[in-house]
Amino acid sequence: MIGSLELLASLRPLHICIGKTGHITQSGRSIAKLGSGNLVGQRFLEVFEVQRPSRPSDMTGLRQLSDQVIRLRFRAEPDLALRALVLDDRSGGLILDISFGIAVVSAVRRFGLTAKDFAASDLAVELLFLQEAKSTAMAASFNLNTRLNGARLAAETEALTDGLTGLHNRRALDGALMRLGQSETDFAVLHMDLDRFKTVNDTLGHATGDTVLKQVADVMRAQTRQNDLLVRMGGDEFVIICPGLTDHLRLAGLSDALISGVSDPTLTERQGAQIGASIGIAISASGLEPATIIDRADIALYAAKRAGRGCHRVWTPDMGTSLSELDA
């Protein structure tokens, strides 16, 4: 029959035998690879620090941990958490069967361990396989998520943008109005309609019409502030939302600049095809739905057109709350 110490040496590469004086008398073949060299002859508690369940400072304290699983670490490698089963060797000494637990991944990297450093029955290598496989699969998933997220952002932007002019579209306006409705921010709505645009489209063709619309968008970008929302509602109809801007004088100045920019004869590059713009303005008031403000800007726009086009009007209570009232 094989001797017990020999049996221990062949089966448990990570064991330590401690004599009754507290000195290490034998260690498994892999222990020496853990950075502290050959431990035989050294005092166990000088090489290791036992952390749980108690912190024994001598052999008597250590012996009281028999048959328990303890947490310990090398004093020279404080980052490597180990655990061990403590066994009484029945002749005054102790045997510790050590394992890395979940720290096996970092231990293998730190000390360059190989499959032979573990007991044949140990699942350490399977754990390492799984860890690597998981990292590889996670990397692939992460990759996919990154690409999908990029596509989602692009699709979201596209869904809120007018393809021709690059301005926002009606859907973006709805979202912005909803957010404004929930906030305390005052804002102005400018509803702008191009004058004589239909003539340009009919006489110079749709391609020229499209170019003109793009140039109108450029004029709008040049005249507005960065956080104003510029929307093409469709056709030759535009809406500008100006958060925080309610001053009548400044709104009048903005409208004049827009109308004069749009009316620039070089915009269409041909004589006789000059367009213009009419603008209706409404300003938010507490307790009113954003949709009501939009309606008021619409009414004011109609008033501007009736006043002879090429001008702006700010909504006033005498204009009423619907287009039919205005006509009456």
Binding site: V105, V108, R109, F111, G112, L113, T114, A115, V125, L128, Q131, E132, S135, T136, A139
Partner: peptide, 12 residues
């Protein structure tokens, strides 16, 4: 092949 090369391999 060494078990400890994993760190580099998984970066791929």
């Amino acid at each position: 092949f060494s078990l400890s090369d994993a760190a580099e391999a998984t970066v791929q």
